[in-house]
Amino acid sequence: MTDEHATQGRRKTDPQRARELISFRIGAQKFCVDIMSVREIRGWTPATALPQSPAFVRGVVNLRGAVLPIVDLSARLGFSPTEPSARHVIIVAQIGDQSVGLLVDAVSDILSVTDNLLQPTPDVASDMAKTFVKGVIAIDSRMISLIALDHVLPGAEREAA
């Protein structure tokens, strides 16, 4: 019989605390993001191109009446740009006040990971990847990189109006 308060108290300081992560694949590599940031998963639909935007911004799509930018996560992380097709997946993520679609190859599982399983990013990672990768997790002898979404969108100063 768990005592609610006791459980919560433990959660604050407990390295055993579990987070839920969605893992996905880009090329041969596996990544994951905190499920709290994920709004939904959609299939790929052709995006409307945006003039004069960085190569990793593939354009915008209609998400139930709102305009959603699509970021090619592979290109953003410094890998080769994706050739999207109907088999690709869009992870709709919430970054601050904005919703953004992340273009990835496939989505795998939902992992429940405790903080003590998170290891620091290895030094061999490229600078680009270092900006986005918060740490790595070892599961079933595979390395899964945990992505931080804060800098995914093009970094231009967006001053409050």
Binding site: L50, P51, Q52, S53, V57, V60, A66, V67, L68, P69, Q98, S99, V100, L153, P154, A156, R158
Partner: peptide
């Protein structure tokens, strides 16, 4: 709203 100003 979800992106930023695009020139043109």
């Amino acid at each position: 709203a979800n992106y930023q100003h695009v020139p043109g």
